[in-house]
């Protein structure tokens, strides 16, 4: 049995990817399972989805995947906020959407597992018109792991996307062609620096009734992790009017000493409202 863990962001279609993969595997006569790990997350927040695929026996385990054979990452930014390689088997494979080459990625992320990379965002923009990479990454997955035939993915994608299906099928095929797979680089794991959350209290430490006595604990919640684009201010165009400051729904746009504005990236979710409201077009949203 092959176990897969998907890392995506809320709204990126990771759940759909896993479902389509399961449907493709089942259409090949295999046993497969897809299920999400639901939380309170909003659009942009890191989410997990799981697959199990077995060529010949029914799948009984109904628990999340802790030791995946395959990890697939839909968003390059997730490498820096969550340990995507956690529990990945030594003979497993990590499939990444990244604009970086295999060599570049290896310099910052390596381990005993194999690596596969594809610039899925660029392919999705070209073939579908939006940077939603879930179907694109299915092509990369099929190429890197051979877990299903590329053709098996076509029917589920057509069924799911109707009129918009053609671009998704094309993106999936293009990613299949462009995915680069490398052999294991080394056995010493090397990972990007990751923000560590606070340790959760145990039952002995909780106050009776789980009462929270300190206000403002939501302040620790790093909503900046949800961001896939960030606002960048062009000081040539900025007239310091403060419209971005007024419209930011998170209250995370701050004024600098010089009177310009900038976003607090700990909280900025990259919603783009500031860029939309800026009437001198001084704010551009750039990909993380």
């Amino acid at each position: 049995m092959i176990e897969i863990r998907w890392h995506g962001r809320g709204g990126q279609g990771a759940v759909t990817s896993a479902e389509l993969l399961a449907l493709a595997a089942i259409s090949e006569g295999k046993f497969a399972q897809a299920f999400p790990s639901f939380g309170p997350e909003r659009r942009g927040a890191p989410v997990l989805v799981f697959n199990r695929v077995s060529p010949n026996s029914p799948i009984r385990a109904r628990v999340s995947v802790a030791h995946p054979d395959i990890v697939i990452v839909l968003d390059p930014g997730l490498l820096y906020i969550t340990d995507v390689t956690s529990g990945l088997k030594e003979d497993g494979i990590l499939v990444l959407n990244t604009p970086k080459s295999l060599v570049e990625i290896r310099s910052e992320l390596s381990g005993p597992w194999r690596l596969a990379v594809v610039n899925a965002t660029s392919i999705a923009r070209e073939m579908i018109g939006v940077p939603i990479v879930n179907t694109t990454m299915l092509g990369a997955l099929a190429r890197a792991t051979r877990i299903v035939e590329l053709d098996s993915l076509t029917e589920p994608i057509l069924e799911r996307f109707g009129a918009r299906a053609r671009g998704n099928v094309d993106a999936c095929r293009k990613a299949y062609e462009e995915t680069e797979t490398g052999e294991p680089a080394g056995i010493v794991p090397k990972r990007p620096k990751i923000f560590e959350g606070e340790e959760l209290p145990t039952w002995q430490e909780l106050l009776p009734g789980c009462v929270l006595t300190k206000p403002g604990s939501a302040r620790q919640y790093r909503t900046g992790d949800w961001r896939s684009e960030r606002p960048v201010w062009d000081h040539q165009r900025c007239i310091k009017c403060g419209i971005c400051y007024l419209f930011c729904p998170e209250g995370c746009v701050k004024q600098t000493k010089e009177g310009y504005f900038e976003a607090d990236l700990y909280y900025c979710k990259g919603c783009g409202i500031c860029a939309r409201e800026c009437w001198t077009e001084a704010i551009k949203m750039v990909e993380e």
């Binding site: 939380g39 309170p40 209290p201 909780l206 789980c210 604990s217």
Partner: peptide
């Protein structure tokens, strides 16, 4: 009540509890 609802000393009761916290809360 050791931590009553009191505007001068704000507390939160019945907050959201994802599974790792919920399990500990039920054990307690």
């Amino acid at each position: 009540h050791p931590y009553p609802l009191d505007p001068d000393r704000p507390v939160t009761m019945g907050a959201f509890g994802p599974p790792p916290i919920y399990t500990e809360a039920k054990k307690a």
